[in-house]
Design a protein around this nucleic acid. Structure first.
Lengths: 246, 246
DNA sequence: CGCGTCATTTGACACAGATCAAAGACGACT
DNA sequence: AGTCGTCTTTGATCTGTGTCAAATGACGCG
């Protein structure tokens, strides 16, 4: 369980990689100090379940690095991912003790976390915190609704293309600008996890990935490492020209 | 375009049928007076589009009576409903001018609405309003995520059963207690709208409704009027015993 | 009362994606 | 370098839903 960030390196919020996008994004330095006082870091290993559905959670967390997923399971084992958590995403629901989804670390994940009660107190004290939380929740809602269109109405090929386009946008927007050509990134998920996200089987995911590769839409170098020669070509395969905001 | 509620009847918030569940639910009488001062009512005919995707909206609205839907359309006409709006549901996104979904009245709909700017000012002034809006948004997010499981992993029969169970819970919770046996309600949607909600075709919806009827899970009296002899029997058909909170 | 419109049902058939099965690939560990 | 476990690919079939088409029913209107 090696750590990408040691607690020491991160003690100062000013240096935090997610400072500008996390729940604390709107906070002034003085307000940040209040959060700083109650925060701590924790790292989870790849594959570890961070929270089980139904658990009473003790902390709210922001992902600092790594990738986690939110998912639901039916009694007979059918599984659906309902959220993809990347750096700056928030986990937990102020006002509710419970969480109704499993949260799993797909890579090693480091979170910045706050005990529920103290955080809820700050929520009452810091308007900027509330505003950011509401904005993030509304963004999540929009993303979930975009995804319902993908799940309900798109073909397997369109689902894969939509997924890759979303991941490309999100991963690369964390890093900075996104070029139209020759963009490269990693899908950090197994074919099975992609299938769970897309409402498909892993076999279908594999076949469609290879079909997109054969058609030159993507280049697969190391199974998970995707290269997209022309981004608009990928977008054209998603079925809708209107891009996602996820 | 007959009106179920005339503006006059509704002038006083204290008498409002959605007083306890709408965005104003947490407000004190004094706070309510501020909202009262900027509110107005509007009625839409069944079938009317209340907002087009991409529109810059001038008002935020709460549904007072009737049923509306939130939906997205792909270029080639494929359609997915992403929200079912019943009395007390809120339409619009403070902080964003645009809406990215079509909002359609499926029955005659009366809304209580507020101009965006004045409402946003009150949002800054009234903590109870903010809190309620955040709670409602989080409830919507949970509902959307539950629905992703339905869209991604359930069979046609399970989808129909899930839909009926959700509508039963929502419609009847507005009216009061929900009995286990012999509950009756109206699905206010056509087979086509149900199909759009469930990611199915209207033919499949029709077939599965009749299959559930043949198996005695539901009784169909007038196409849209559903009777459920034993509610738990319907829930058993949804594929998951863990009920929905929608 | 008959006509037109719209919602719904029913039937026959096709196909996308699921399922079942097996073989490769790749990395980690000894 | 070899072995084990996990992830991925590939092939052969099956099946749930979609698609196309037409009949039936429900309701308002002249």
């Amino acid at each position: 369980m090696t750590e990408l960030f040691s607690p020491k390196e991160l003690l100062r919020c000013a240096d935090c990689p997610i400072r500008k996008r996390a729940v604390c994004a709107y906070c002034e330095p003085a307000e940040l100090a209040d959060l700083d006082a109650i925060k701590s870091y924790k790292t989870f290993a790849a594959g570890e379940t961070m929270v089980w559905s139904g658990d009473v959670v003790s902390h709210f967390s922001s992902i600092v690095s790594g990738v986690a997923t939110l998912s639901q399971t039916l009694d007979d084992g059918r599984r659906q991912m309902v959220g993809l958590l990347l750096p700056s995403d928030f986990i937990g629901r102020p006002g509710r003790g419970q969480i109704t989804f499993d949260v799993e670390a797909k890579t090693e994940v480091t979170v910045c976390r706050f005990e529920c009660r103290p955080f809820e107190v700050l929520l009452g004290k810091i308007p900027h915190l509330r505003e950011r939380l509401l904005d993030m929740t509304m963004d999540d809602l929009d993303a979930a609704r975009e995804w319902m269109l993908v799940l309900g109405r798109k073909t397997a090929r369109e689902k894969i293309a939509s997924f890759l386009a979303i991941v490309a946008r999100r991963v690369l927007s964390v890093e900075g600008a996104m070029p139209e050509r020759d963009l490269e990134f990693d899908v950090m998920l197994t074919r099975e996890a992609m299938a769970d996200y897309l409402g498909l089987t892993l076999e279908t995911v594999s076949r469609q990935m290879n079909a997109l590769k054969k058609d030159g839409v993507i280049v697969l170098e190391k199974k998970r490492a995707i290269k997209v020669p022309v981004f608009s070509r990928l977008v054209a395969e998603t079925g809708d020209d209107t891009g996602f905001s996820f």
